[in-house]
């Protein structure tokens, strides 16, 4: 008789333990989430996410830098040779193989738009420097070519091409 009673008691206790633990876990989860999430970019930061840039004053061979989302963006009007060099590169020579035409807008080969942040540890590379005449990062020696692709050094990937579009012939919208 007492055995049956004990068994009953255990099942009931088990049930209560499970329920309490579940409610507790949900509560802890609900309390932790806001604390973690508050550290992510807030609404005002996200609202500033796009800018427009006028390109009419940029001459061939020239490069301008604009600030977007707190990061520099390089906009380079490439020369004929630079485009040619970028297009004729053998994909086998690349650490992060990508064709040049995938990195520019169709029919706008002239314009290369990349985020000016080294994919290694985030320094700003210097334009027109390095072994491949694209960019050179002084921090730990990464060399990028005229398409912003990584050629030599510790950076793992090519300079990032941000989301952008031509809103008119000489105006782009980044973001």
């Amino acid at each position: 008789m007492s055995e049956i009673k004990n068994k009953d008691k255990t099942t009931r206790r088990d049930f209560l333990t499970t329920v309490t633990a579940t409610v507790g876990a949900v509560g802890v989860g609900a309390a932790v989430l806001p604390v973690i999430s508050q550290m992510n970019p807030d609404s005002s930061v996200k609202a500033l996410a796009s800018i427009e840039v006028d390109l009419s004053k940029v001459k061939e061979g020239q490069e301008i830098t604009v600030l977007w989302r707190g990061k520099p963006v390089f906009i380079k009007r490439r020369t004929k040779e630079e485009i040619q060099k970028a297009q004729q590169t053998n994909l086998k020579d690349l650490k992060d193989p990508q064709e040049d035409k995938l990195r520019v807008k169709k029919g706008k080969d002239e314009w290369l738009v990349v985020v000016g942040v080294c994919t290694h540890l985030g320094c700003v590379p210097i334009g027109g420097k390095g072994d491949y005449n694209g960019w050179f990062c002084p921090c730990h020696g990464s060399h990028y070519d005229t398409s912003g692709r990584i050629r030599k050094g510790p950076a793992p990937t090519n300079l990032e091409v941000p989301q952008y579009e031509f809103v008119s012939n000489d105006k782009i919208k980044i973001g």
């Binding site: 550290m39 992510n40 970019p41 930061v45 942040v117």
Partner: peptide, 13 residues
């Protein structure tokens, strides 16, 4: 990294 920064680059946050 974005979570640590609270932004898309090191800044005020």
């Amino acid at each position: 990294v974005t979570w640590l920064w609270g932004d898309y680059a090191v800044g005020d946050a």
